[in-house]
Simulated scan of single mutants.
Amino acid sequence: MTKLALVLAVSALTATAALAEDAAKEVADTDGNGTFSLAEVQAVYANVTEEAFKAADTDASGELSADELKAAIESGAFAA
């Protein structure tokens, strides 16, 4: 029973990470600069506010890196 619970837990974590990665791929880098602007994020996640975007921008660059975007999605900060 413990092995089954462990397998299910690992499967759930893997699936969650895969879903977050897929969701991050949905956001298009329309200007091709390698980062994601608020407008690019809002094209997929319309409810993302400027405040939430700035909170996800951990390096305060004004745009999100792929890692920052993925982290925001995984944390549930950006809900579709």
Rank of each mutant, 00 (worst) to 15 (best):
F78T: 01
D59I: 10
L64V: 05
A23R: 08
S37H: 05
F78S: 01
L6I: 15
A18G: 11
A17Q: 12
E68H: 09
K54L: 09
D67L: 07
F53E: 03
E21D: 15
F36T: 00
D29T: 05
G32I: 07
T49S: 11
S75R: 02
T30Q: 06
Q42T: 07
A71K: 10
E21Y: 12
T14K: 11
S75E: 05
A12I: 10
G34L: 08
L38N: 02
L4A: 15
L38H: 03
A12Y: 15
F78D: 00
A39Q: 04
L64E: 04
A9C: 14
A12G: 14
E26W: 06
E63W: 00
N47F: 00
A18N: 09
A43S: 08
N33T: 09
S61W: 09
V7Y: 14
S11G: 15
S37Y: 04
I73E: 00
S61C: 10
T58Q: 13
A71Q: 09
A20R: 00
L6A: 14
D22M: 12
K54R: 15
L8R: 13
I73C: 01
L6Y: 12
L4C: 15
T14Y: 11
S75C: 01
L69F: 00
L6P: 11
N47V: 04
E63Q: 03
A5P: 06
D22G: 06
A66S: 08
E74A: 12
L4P: 08
V10Y: 10
A79C: 07
A17R: 13
V48N: 03
A46N: 08
E40P: 03
A24W: 00
K70P: 02
A77N: 10
S65F: 01
L38P: 01
A24T: 07
D57Y: 11
A20F: 01
A71R: 01
V7S: 13
A56H: 08
L69V: 00
D29R: 10
Y45A: 03
V44G: 02
Q42A: 06
G62A: 14
L19P: 02
D22I: 05
M1Q: 13
L6F: 12
A56N: 09
E50R: 05
D57P: 05
A12C: 14
A23I: 05
T58N: 13
T2N: 13
L13H: 09
A46C: 05
V48S: 00
K70R: 12
E21K: 09
T30R: 07
S11T: 11
T14L: 15
A24S: 13
E26I: 07
A72M: 01
T35D: 08
G34E: 07
S75W: 01
A28W: 02
N47H: 03
D67N: 07
E51T: 14
E74Y: 11
S75L: 06
A24P: 04
S65I: 04
V27A: 04
A39S: 08
A39C: 06
A23F: 04
A28F: 04
K25Y: 07
A52E: 12
S65W: 02
E68R: 04
